[in-house]
Structure formats: C-alpha cells, structure tokens
Amino acid sequence: MNKLSYRLIHLLIGWGTVGLIYQFNSLLQAKATLLHPSKIDQLIPFTPYAIWPYLSFFIIIPVSFLSAPLHRVRWMTVCFMLTSLIAGSIYLFFPTSMLSAAPIGSSIHAQLLGALMSVDTENNCLPSLHVALTLIVVLGYINQKQKLKSILMALWGSVICLSVLFLKRHLFLDLVSGACLAIVVGAGVYYGLKRMNNAATLNRHGGR
C-alpha cells in the first residue's frame, strides 16, 4: 500500500465513523436540555461572516490527513473514532441545545447558515465535536520541521474553533468541553498506541 492510499483509507475510516455516529444520533433525537449563554457568550457578537471559517472545517480535516507526518495518521484516525463515540454517547444520553441566531437577509452568508441549520441536529451542543476534531487534526499536523506551516495550521484551527461562537452554533462551555475531550482522548490514544508499539517490538525481538 502506498502512502497516499494509506492516508485516504485512514481518512475514510476516521471521518466515516464520525459521520455514521452523527447520523445515528440524529435518528434518535430526544428532548434536549437548553443551555443558556454565559457572560462570555453575551460579549461575542453574532457574525454571519463566520460561516466561512466554520465551513472550512471540512477542508482542514482532509488537508491534515493528507499532509500530516505519516506516523500521526493512525493516531488521528483512532482519535476520531473514540472522540465521536464519546461525544455521540453524550448527545444520546444527555442531549443539549441552545437558542441559535436565525439568518437574516438574502446574502450568501445567510443562505449558507440557513442551509446549515436545516440539516444540523439540535441535540449536539456539549461537547463541540466541531472543536474537538479540529483540535485533533491541528495537533496531528504540527511538525517541528515545518514551523511556519504548523503555525499557519494552528491559526486556521483557532479561527475555526472561534467561529462556532461568533456564528452562535455553540456556547463557550461547548468549546471548552470539546477541547478537553480532544486533549484527553488524544493523550490516551498516544500512550495506548505507544504501549502497543513497544509490546510489538518486544515480541519481534523475543521471537528471534
């Protein structure tokens, strides 16, 4: 298997798992607990232009899977699977919602936001999967040998995470919980894969 095929297969498995769990939850929507904005949320103005960085989420993921250091690809895939499973379980057993800002006018921003709201589910506020997956691919991409590209990727990911607040798709609590979920899962998967690799190395050496 060449490197490109390896990357594409992992992208399909990781992102495909997210999609399946997301759709499964949308079929089992229960009455959600309404979350109220905090003082921080009240200070953030509704900004329709934030739809562009928000939607660039669907670009940053394949970009990272196709260009991140090869040894990080497996890590990102497992993180995607576990993160979506944990978040999906929370959405199922503790669904949360919020009052979203309605799009006004006929601008392309309003039309895109309206289309987004028409297909999005209403029980998946906390934690923000948008933020969690973005943070995972940013961490997976960062490379000491490519500092400028890593900085640009980190800035891109930061703008995406902030866009969920300015677009009023999530609350600050959702952002923080999504980031915490990504960090906890990321660390757990890292040490889990490291132990598996060490055990495999010992078995190979022991079999000689």
Rank of each mutant, 00 (worst) to 15 (best):
D120N: 08
L171H: 15
S177G: 04
K147A: 08
S56T: 14
H109W: 04
S97P: 02
N143C: 11
V18H: 11
A132T: 11
L171F: 11
S84T: 03
I21W: 03
N198M: 13
L126T: 11
N25W: 09
I160Q: 04
L173W: 07
R169D: 12
L167V: 00
G16Y: 06
L113S: 05
L34E: 14
A50D: 10
C161P: 01
Y22H: 02
L34A: 07
H170F: 10
W15I: 10
H205M: 11
P53I: 14
C125W: 00
I108C: 01
L148E: 06
T121V: 07
S67Y: 12
S150M: 10
I90W: 01
L162W: 02
G19M: 13
I9W: 08
P95E: 07
G105R: 00
F65Y: 15
H170E: 05
L162H: 01
V159W: 14
V78L: 07
T83D: 02
I44N: 06
R208M: 13
G88L: 05
A68L: 10
F65E: 08
L165C: 02
G188E: 03
V137D: 10
L167R: 05
M1V: 10
R169M: 15
T47A: 03
W52L: 15
V138F: 08
D120S: 06
A182P: 09
N197G: 06
M153I: 09
T33V: 09
L133T: 15
K147M: 12
A182I: 13
M76Q: 04
T17V: 12
K31D: 14
A154I: 06
C180L: 14
I40C: 02
L66Y: 14
Q111S: 04
W75R: 01
C180H: 03
V63N: 04
A30E: 13
G192N: 01
S106I: 00
M98F: 11
S84A: 13
A68K: 07
P95W: 07
K145V: 03
L20E: 06
G19A: 14
A179M: 08
V164P: 00
K168R: 12
P48R: 09
S128P: 09
K168L: 04
A187M: 10
L8G: 06
N198P: 02
L152F: 13
D41C: 11
I160S: 01
H205Y: 11
S26T: 05
F24N: 09
K145T: 11
V184R: 06
C125L: 10
A87P: 01
K3H: 11
N143V: 09
Y54S: 08
I151R: 09
C125A: 13
L148Q: 14
L181V: 06
P53G: 12
H130T: 14
L8C: 05
L12N: 08
A101T: 08
L11M: 05
L148K: 14
L113D: 05
L70A: 06
R195W: 12
Y49P: 00
F93C: 08
V185Q: 04
S118N: 10
